[in-house]
Write a protein that binds this DNA or RNA. Structure first.
Lengths: 215, 215
DNA sequence: TAGATTGTTAATCGATTAACAATC
DNA sequence: TAGATTGTTAATCGATTAACAATC
């Protein structure tokens, strides 16, 4: 089995923002949207939007653009956002709580069925309607749920050991919000979300602007 | 004034993870770290690590690697993480609360001096020691604080109007956690943090693995 | 029709990777 | 010394951008 190639990451990352714009236009009653308009709205080049949109397999109409409802369907299909995907969240702290409450993910088909935590005081409580279960029972519960996606929001020191349990439980994708580079088997996908890297970008960019001003 | 070029974004984004590894090694008592080791730890190419590290201006010793404490200083300087930077947070909801409580940012010099919210019930309360103030007073307060960084965690519909106020208040950098593309003057930096794009990456990658398995 | 927009093919640009001499 | 590692210079790779014919 040759390892299949993942489609261009920058394009995948841009598609959700297209989706956001397009849905907005749909609410305003439009039937078609041109790549030019999307580009304008997001400060991108029209050709880039056309290339990205082409990935989803949809074709547009010269002079009119892309049919909005079909484009939404195509993007959601491409991102696998057209079906409900169950997930568990591990580490019901501040960040975990925020992610459970984040409505946008639900819209994209993410359904958090349970949260796990080590703090007994949280056992049985509900966070935005999601029950917190004991971390000890994680492996067996995930197996019985048949869940394949885990959102990891535990403290960094527990990250790797938690990931090991998740892998044993049959998890296929880990959305990793810790700053730990997880070691997992090849067949398990890890998406690392690094808030610090975004902060680094902000700091450097602000410094560049400042230097530009001061000469 | 020619607009200065921002250093390679992918490199900037990788530096925080280097910093994390290096600090760990320092805690274990090491004095030197080689690019090879950092690369191994993060699943990168050694040459890439050397190139990135070179950006910070530090030089290593053949056979030994880079002096750890000097390397930490160099990276932190490069990212402007060597000084305390005051910031305000706007929108004290779930995500805002999580970010205020995120210790890592403090380590990187981010000091949240106040939070703003529209909910009167929150006025005067403290979130992880940070006082919540009325959103109405935002402009004048930010001016009097002299704060230049704002973390934006308001609901999407309020994002642009809030950004407008921030700009009027003299904010120079906005860390934008909404899914709205903000329109701001050229001299204001916006770093957009898009959690949905990370989720899109996870979904597509999981699908690729699944297709690989099923043929 | 005229003109805006698509989609394709080619060119450019920039980041990653390779090669290798220098060096401790 | 021998060998691991750095730092520089060149090659490769992939993403972005440009050009333009097709078309509604």
């Amino acid at each position: 089995m040759t390892k299949p190639k993942i489609a261009a990451a920058p394009s995948i990352r841009r598609l959700p923002s297209y989706l956001h714009i397009i849905k907005q236009l749909q609410r305003e009653g439009d039937d078609y949207i041109s790549g030019t308009v999307i580009a304008q709205e997001l400060n991108l080049e029209p050709i880039q939007v056309r290339k990205d949109v082409a990935l989803t397999g949809i074709t547009g109409k010269p002079k009119k653009g892309y049919p909005i409802s079909a484009l939404i369907t195509a993007i959601e299909r491409f991102l696998c956002w057209n079906s409900i995907k169950d997930a568990v969240l591990v580490g019901a702290g501040n960040l975990g709580t925020a992610l459970i409450g984040h409505r946008e993910f639900q819209i994209h088909g993410l359904n958090i069925v349970a949260a796990f935590d080590r703090n007994p005081q949280k056992y049985g409580t509900a966070i935005h309607g999601v029950t917190v279960l004991p971390a000890d029972t994680m492996e067996i519960q995930i197996r019985s749920f048949g869940v394949k996606i885990a959102i990891l929001t535990v403290p960094s020191p527990s990250a790797q050991e938690t990931a090991d349990v998740l892998v044993r439980a049959g998890i296929e994708g880990i959305w990793n919000f810790t700053n730990v580079k997880l070691k997992v088997p090849d067949n398990v996908v890890v998406q690392k979300e690094d808030l610090s890297s975004g902060y680094a970008m902000l700091c450097v960019a602000m410094n560049v602007v400042r230097e530009g001003r001061n000469g």
